[in-house]
Amino acid sequence: MFYQNHINIDSLKAAQDSLRTIAEKSNSLNTVTFDLSKIGNDEIILTVLGYGIVFLALLILYLFFANLTKLINITRKKRLKAAGKESSDKDELPISGETTAAISLALALQFQEAHDFENTVITIKKVQSAYSPWNSKLYGLRQNPKY
């Protein structure tokens, strides 16, 4: 019988228990204690250094892009001046939030071809496929079938 050739259940249970023990051991923290003395110089240095470096990275990024904008504007103005056109300062007049929102909505609707009116009449349109010799029944049959 199949169950007689099978592995002994007790040995399987023992294997299962040993797996659980391994899993428990892998979790190094099973008791909670609060101990300030565990904070050494290394931990403080890592904290200060880590937070400082995050700030430094984003500060450099900020300085670069704050100046890049100025640089782009100066170059653009020079180009416009050389071409004899007016400065583009007028383009940078602040637009109110409502106006921006209205323009954005209009553009979004335009691009998505969305509409707020739904026709409730359902019409079944007749679909007529275009003529093609490939789908013509006529060419699939003999003109004068013998049998």
């Binding site: 931990e43 700030f55 984003l58 900020y62």
Partner: peptide
């Protein structure tokens, strides 16, 4: 951008706190 850096305070504060708890 600096606000994105400032908000990382939680990471480093918790790092120190977790150390005191034995991690």
């Amino acid at each position: 951008m600096l606000l994105g850096a400032a908000a990382q305070l939680g990471i480093f504060f918790t790092y120190i706190t977790a150390i005191t708890l034995g991690f």
